[in-house]
């Protein structure tokens, strides 16, 4: 059995019966401020909804056991791994992805700091880190190293060795604080 089905079964709390699963359920999710409606199979993951139904491909998939965080989005303002949620669970929720961060053509502070500090190389993990860091800074606007490591400990980056990411988040916190005062 595929491990992705195992995740789905764990989430559904029961064995998947293929016939029944082809029945579709209507969902309506506010994605980056716009309502997206679709009839989806109950087994569809939120990340699949975001990428395949809504066509927003900035949110990535890096694993099948909720380890890597490449799929991190904000669900009702809080960071969540969108591969651990079903699209049907998110019915009526508000979901924000990396595509929501920029305003017009301008990068937001975190995006700019990631670029400035060389906190990305291939960039595959970056959307997930940006969303996790957005959630972290909302909860804790002045995180020390330890808080950053803890807050982003559920995200994997295979390229940067993490230290530049810690630096980027710290410098974003400073910039945001300066702008507020």
């Amino acid at each position: 059995m595929s491990s992705r089905r195992a995740v789905r079964e764990r989430l559904l709390g029961r064995r998947i019966n293929t016939m029944a699963e082809t029945m579709k359920i209507p969902v309506s999710i506010t994605l980056n401020g716009s309502i997206v409606r679709a009839d989806v199979e109950p087994r569809m993951l939120l990340v699949e909804f975001i990428r395949e139904v809504a066509g927003q491909t900035g949110t990535h998939i890096g694993c099948d056991t909720s380890y890597c965080g490449a799929c991190t989005v904000l669900v009702n303002g809080r960071p969540a791994k969108s591969c651990t949620l079903l699209a049907v669970q998110a019915d009526g929720w508000s979901v924000n992805t990396v595509e929501s961060l920029e305003s017009g053509d301008t990068l937001n502070v975190l995006q700019q700091c990631f670029a400035d500090k060389h906190a990305l190389q291939c960039g595959f993990c970056t959307p997930g880190f940006l969303m996790a860091a957005t959630g972290l800074l909302e909860q804790n606007p002045d995180p020390d190293d330890k808080a950053i490591r803890k807050g982003l400990g559920g995200n994997v980056c295979r390229c940067t060795g993490y230290l530049p990411i810690i630096e980027a988040v710290r410098s974003a916190a400073v910039v945001i604080k300066e702008r507020r005062s």
């Binding site: 990535h60 595509e99 060389h118 990305l120 960039g123 970056t126």
Partner: peptide, 22 residues
């Protein structure tokens, strides 16, 4: 000069084009 990577402008926006996006 401040550090700038040409790649980053698209990647931090989630606008990279990876094979799974195609």
């Amino acid at each position: 000069a401040p550090f700038r990577r040409k790649e980053d402008n698209r990647l931090v926006r989630g606008r990279g084009r990876f094979v799974d996006d195609e």
